[in-house]
Amino acid sequence: MKKMSKEEYKTLYEQKKPKAKLFRNCSKAFLVGGLICTIGQGINDILVKIAGINEIDASAYTSIILVFIAAILTGLGVYDDIGKFAGAGSVVPITGFANSVISPAMEFKKEGLVFGTSAKIFVIAGPVIVYGLMTSTICGLIYYIYRVVIAL
């Protein structure tokens, strides 16, 4: 085959790629993502206004309830269909985080509950927790030093 540089080849195959339907994908992401957040707001309002729970606890309960809903949908095999349709609209909300914890737990059950489910449960979501805690700890340290300096 005639010599072709990697850059030339990249130009060739990038040019032939099917065009991503960006507007359609964004519309679906917007609708589903917005809907999940609205459902979250609804749950929050029911807890505060009807159940009389304080705002802070209600916020935690809302996360837990959304995680529970995502768990059921993942278990029933529905969440991956939502994900296929909505893309980022199903990945970005906390339900997406829950799906990324629950789906490997289900998947790796075949390798047993210890070496499979429990060991692989954070195989997708691990980076989120690691980077989140890293960043909040460093920022927390800076905040602490700032408070100490202000107090002086």
Partner: peptide, 11 residues
Amino acid sequence: AAIVFGYLVAL
């Protein structure tokens, strides 16, 4: 919640 529900759903 994610860990607990994840384990239960996996079961």
